[in-house]
Design a protein around this nucleic acid. Structure first.
Lengths: 335, 335
DNA sequence: TCAAGTTGTGTAACTAGTTACATTCAAATT
DNA sequence: AATTTGAATGTAACTAGTTACACAACTTGA
């Protein structure tokens, strides 16, 4: 009679029995093979291979109290800036033998809070979030659990969480000052309103702080290239065109470029265009995009190291300010 | 004397002791609250809240044999096509209460194999990979562990793994046939060589199969917009220009567009340009990019559902063919 | 009034590992 | 020859949950 039964994974005890040794010895072969006699080790190893034994991570986690993974909460993966950040974050964590669980929030604070709770419930040892503005539940959760958590894309040394990011206000000011230096005073600003997006708010506030002597107009759109394109069309409707357009992100700027071109406006001859982010593609569009470089890859690796230090050695990191810098390319020229 | 000690998470036994009940009762309050007397339940719940008790996922996993996460191995997150796929994969898995661990491979089969092993070692219940060509170790690993695994971006009903993807050969043929229909016979092809990239190889083979009557030239470059741009410059060096350029990915095509523009070639008047992927940005560049749409978001959700079914109910999915379709936009016109 | 059934709870044995401590045995030292 | 030392291994108690089974207390029916 053939017994139909799921061949359950073999465990330590199975291997121990098969090899005629104790469970402790098998465990030693796994974790400190030097402390086991050559012959015994070989015999055990052979049985391990024979039985295709793989130690259970859950059982290990239960003993060590370590799960060896952290969670990252990002608004979306469908934007190169977050994808690039996660790319380097994942690589950085890998050097510390930590895995990364990704959760997307759609920029919805409630969803973020809920996903954060799920991540912690399944044993995440640390979290990475974007920005410092979150759901009250989320803050309460972090305060309660005391899980190592780093807020990114936003530098704020006074925040209760360590932050790794840039000064969004001054990043925007770098762009505005560049345009001002080139003699532009009538500037259209395109930004994407995502509710609770503190990065955008900080950038807008940075602009407000230095708007003296400038004639600014604001265009709100959605965060996508087509959003940028349609905002550009909106700008073109105005009979008195601005001499420059500043987009608060490169995605918007790339879209705006095509919007302007579709209206037969030449960039930068007819109108200057600036972005903010410096995506890989921004250097190769035509004309190449003047922008403000945000070091997201560095942010990823710094965050990875800081979080690993916190998780593994309890070392609470201090906030890190990454400097944004002007990247002057072909889309801006003297007014 | 203040004792400095890590307040370790409270566990079932702590709660049981505090509430004056047995561990079984606390466990019941957690898992089948109806089977516990109202008063007892309230008392226990209060202690759970007081002690901020959260059940350990590892301990649960050890009993259920479930870790509730799967791993995805992608070449990089720094390409919209994979990021979009993961975005919908993650969302799809979320509806099945499965988490997603992301691992990047840099298109290196050895790295992929190693990361796959790591994922399985930490208890991944399933895997998602790109393409069907992998390291021998990787195949051996999958055969040994029998972990539910789905190969994506590549449809092959005869593969030993279920595949969810499109027919890359015919996707490329759709593009070539479109150009041929428009009267183009001299076509330059730009492709990115990533060693072992079966998607690219399949696309090239698809072209080979229908090259009769065409005059094709091939340009190999790296997978980035700047790679596309420099390949375009290479094309322009030829005194007898092709009438159309076909890039095997939209990232390359966007780069090629800027490369052609920088040489003062008008697309599509002087030269037609086609991509393959259909990224969100491809519709808004100017001129908008004619391309072949690959349904990566659908691929993500289908993969998520298929993998969840396999993991949760042992239902091995059959391969799914997703159809690519022509997207005719502004970058191609009659020769 | 006694048996049977229901409800609620506890005991202890599981899940799969790690590890402190004990033990054995042989080699080296006194 | 007796003692010390060290290597190699085993025993059993941990980690944090779940759950089969036992049992008490109460209700219900004959």
């Amino acid at each position: 009679m053939k017994r139909i039964e799921a061949k359950k994974r073999s465990n330590l005890r199975d291997v121990a029995k098969a090899a005629g040794v104790s469970v402790a010895t098998v465990s030693r072969v796994l974790n400190s093979p030097d402390s086991v006699n050559e012959q015994t080790r070989k015999k055990v190893q052979q049985k391990i291979d024979e039985l295709k034994f793989v130690p259970s991570a859950a059982a290990r986690a239960i003993n060590s109290g370590r799960s060896r993974f952290v969670g990252a909460l990002v608004p979306t993966l469908d934007n190169a800036i977050f994808a690039r950040f996660l790319n380097s974050l994942e690589q950085g964590l890998g050097t510390h033998r930590l895995s990364l669980i990704v959760a997307t929030t759609d920029s919805d604070p409630e969803k973020e809070s809920q996903k954060a709770r799920e991540l912690l419930d399944i044993g995440a040892e640390g979290l990475v979030v974007s920005g410092v503005t979150h759901d009250p539940d989320f803050h309460a959760l972090l305060r309660q659990r005391r899980t190592p958590t780093i807020a990114t894309s936003f530098y704020d040394p006074n925040h209760y969480l360590p932050t790794v990011g840039y000064d969004n206000a001054s990043a925007a000011q770098i762009a505005i000052n560049h345009l001002r230096d080139l003699g532009h005073t009538r500037i259209a600003i395109i930004y994407a309103s995502q509710k609770n997006n503190d990065r955008t708010i900080a950038r807008l506030n940075g602009i407000k702080a230095i708007e003296e002597g400038l004639e600014l107009s604001y265009f709100e759109t959605e965060m996508s290239q087509s959003g940028g394109a349609s905002a550009a069309l909106e700008i073109c409707k105005n009979p008195r065109l601005p001499s420059a357009v500043f987009c608060l992100s490169d995605v918007l700027a790339t879209g705006a470029l095509f919007g302007l071109q579709s209206q037969h406006l030449k960039v930068p001859d007819d109108i200057s265009l600036m972005g903010l982010d410096d995506l890989p593609g921004s250097a190769v569009i035509f004309p190449s995009l003047s922008t403000v470089h945000l070091p997201v890859s560095r942010m990823g690796s710094i965050t990875a190291n800081a979080l690993a230090d916190w998780v593994e050695r309890g070392k609470i990191p201090s906030s890190t300010l990454l400097s944004a810098r002007l990247v002057e390319r072909g889309s801006t020229k003297r007014a």
